[in-house]
Design a protein around this nucleic acid. Structure first.
Length: 208
DNA sequence: ACGAGGATGCTCT
DNA sequence: GAGCATCCTCGTG
């Protein structure tokens, strides 16, 4: 499997978020074999977006980084992993987009397992049905053994990387407001496969 | 099927 | 001290 190169992520964040649907997430785990899943749900976060970590680090007039903070690493080279802790319990995986120095990232929200399901189930004891393994951003990181050890790593190389789709699909990609946010709710920056059973069951922020 | 409530720790004001 | 890009369990219908 050939990893997607850095230039794939050096593009507008919304394009990358849409294009990542169908792409495989691969973790060549040191002891549990190869974990693989097809991405079925993503969200885009850009530097002029109030829901973006690091939104407050940028000078609103010049777009320049003027402060340090939690989101500083969102301005690193495209293809860098941005992994952070949410609600004190779950790790969420993002891939940094846009040119170095410009903020942007895509959140990986759900995948459909293709390989390594036994190892995933072992880490996801709460999963009663196959979709529960990976149909949410905190669930898939648990299934794929992704935590803060991967923060800042290069996602264009083993052991954790993206690989092009193996087979074509006839999916319809739908959009909606993003999930679980309170600011920037009017932006329809969530991309997902319509009707796919591994899409997260959460309700978009604007429908609340 | 669905909703309420709780867990748990880091960042920012 | 509040808020958070979430998930799980346990109620009630």
């Amino acid at each position: 499997m050939e990893p997607l190169p850095q230039r794939y992520f050096d593009r507008p964040t919304l394009e990358v978020a849409r294009d990542l649907i169908g792409v495989r997430l691969v973790h060549e785990h040191p002891t549990d074999g190869v974990l693989v899943g097809r991405i079925v749900e993503t969200e885009a976060y850009t530097q002029d977006d109030p829901a973006f970590h690091g939104w407050n680090l940028v000078d609103p007039d010049t777009g320049e980084l003027t402060r340090e903070g939690r989101g500083t690493d969102l301005f690193r080279a495209p293809g860098t992993a941005y992994v952070y802790l949410i609600y004190g319990m779950y790790w969420l995986l993002n891939v940094v987009t846009e040119a170095k120095g410009t903020g942007g990232a895509v959140l990986i929200r759900a995948v459909e397992p293709l390989d390594g399901q036994t190892a995933m189930q072992a880490r996801r004891s709460a999963a009663r049905r196959p979709p529960d393994l990976t149909n949410g951003p905190g669930k898939l990181t648990q299934a794929f053994a992704i935590d803060d050890a991967f923060h800042g790593t290069d996602l264009t190389q083993s052991p954790l990387y993206f690989a092009p789709p193996e087979e074509p699909n006839d999916w319809t990609i739908a959009t909606s407001s993003r999930i679980g946010i309170s600011k920037g709710v009017d932006r329809e920056w969530r991309f997902f496969v319509e009707g796919h059973s591994f899409v997260s069951p959460a309700t978009p922020s604007r429908e609340k």
